[in-house]
Every structure is written in structure tokens, then in C-alpha cells.
Amino acid sequence: MSPSVDNAVTPEEVELIRQKALFVREETVRLISIAKVGHYASAFSCAEIFAALYYNILNLKRGEPNWPDRDRFLMGKGHAAVGYFPLLADWGFFPKELLDGYTRVGNPLGDHPDMKNVPGADFSSGSLGHNLSVGLGMALAGRVLGKDYNTYVLLGDGEQQEGQVWEAAISAAHQKASRLIAIVDRNGYSLDGAVDEVMGIEPLPEKWRSFGWETHEVDGHDIPALLGLLKKVANDTEREAPVCIIAHTIKGKGIGFMEKEIGWHLGWLADEDEKAVMAELRANA
């Protein structure tokens, strides 16, 4: 690592990410109230990850979603897209008014990211397991094109059960795709229940390490720790291996009953509950 790079995390940076993570959660509730069903809990678990990437780590240009030198961010767990669409609008990649018609007929914003219709979505997703390979392709292309960008891929922990993830893992280590960074949102749950009961994936850090990836673990809601690690990884220009960050998170983080009840992977809040939820999000932020 270059000693001149400052990976320190300031209180101002932490406060900005705290506010933006709250923004992600509030917007998630608002947008799902339009769709009348959505992935609250899946977006809540990665709210701090979204905020840290989009308001500190990613090298982006406001209003220029196709800037060729930008860092790439792929939503492997595409079902949490409701939480990141507001960030893309906040970056000026598309008009904020589009959010108000989330999932309505003809609106580009659906449950999963669609690169053809959503400026700022670096690739489409929805079928789990694909995006780490797509990110690998982007990382390899950066090498061919002589570009200096990082490619980040957010994976679900249930997604670790997909075989293609491990094809990409072998391939990226072999290709020394050091600019590829996987972040696993280890929130512990998929549709049928606890990931470790549905089909256990542990020991996960050992798996990634044994596949040749530089592997880190972090509390995905501890903003100073998360941001410090992301900075360290983003600025390390000397490593040869791709990086996997396993972010330990809580599914439904921010809302007490969602953290306790597994049914909130996909759900819809009744109107009368929505106000209480918004208040709780603000109190917990």
C-alpha cells in the first residue's frame, strides 16, 4: 500500500454516511409504498454499504453515468435495488421524479436493476450468481483498455449458494483481477429462512481465502470500520489478488420487528405502520 494515501476516517465522513444510510432506508419505505410490495429488509441490511460506496468510495462524475473511467458498482443481489435507485437519482443520473413512479407501468425502475433503462446501473441483474462474473469481465476489460477503475460487486449471502459465484471466484484469482472487489452482505437470511439452515455456506471467510481472494470481515453497520476498510482496499494498488469483504449485517436493520421476523425479505407495510416505521428509522439512525 502506498504510504502517502490517507485511509483515516473523519467524523464528518461518518456523519454524512449515517445521514445517507437513513436516506436509503426512508426512500426504500417510500418507494415500496408505491409498489405495494418490496424487499425492505434486503435493502436495509446494506444501507451503510450503499452509502459508504456512493458518498465516499466510488469515483463517479455527477450527471455522467457513462463516464468511461468511473468505478463500477454491480448489484449482484439485484433485489435490493429499491435502496440504490435513490442514490443514482441523487447523483443526477436520472430525474428524481422517476422515483415517484417506481414500478408503475412504463417506469424504468423495477424490482431489479435494468441497465438498458436505468442510467447509472452499470449492469442488469436479478438472476443471482451472474454479476461477479460480469464484474470480472469489467475488471479484465479495464486492464485491456488501460483504465484505472475498481469494480465492486455486492453479493447476497444466499447468493453464495450459486455455482457461478465460485466459477468467477476461481477465475478472478487466476487472472489476478486485483481491481475486483466483492462485498458479501452477510445478513443471514434468504427466502426460505436462515441461510445456514437452507443450505449452509460456512466457513465463508475460509472459502474465499482458499479460493485465492484477499478476504476481510467487518460489521456492515459500523460506519467507521466499514469505511476504513473500504478506503484501505480501494487505495491498495500493490495487491495481486481480488478482494472479498464479508460484511456482517442484520436483515431489516433499523426496524425492530423486521430484524426479528423473517417474513420481511419481501413485504408491504400497511399505511398506518409506515409512519411508525419512519419515526423508528430516524430514532435508530
Partner: peptide, 27 residues
């Protein structure tokens, strides 16, 4: 430098080709 060996992982190769193409390359 323009040749990529993906080993016996066809699905990975196809998705990676998609990622490469998104940057302007013709895989």
C-alpha cells in the same frame, strides 16, 4: 493480452464477456 482463458466455466465466461462488452470491447 487480448486472449482470456476461462477454464471449464462456461457460464462465467459468458457473463464475463458481457461485462467486457459493456466497456466497449467486442468479445
Amino acid at each position: 493480452d487480448r486472449f482470456f482463458q476461462f477454464g471449464i466455466s462456461e457460464q462465467n465466461m459468458i457473463s464475463a464477456a458481457a461485462g467486457m462488452a459493456s466497456t466497449g470491447l467486442k468479445p
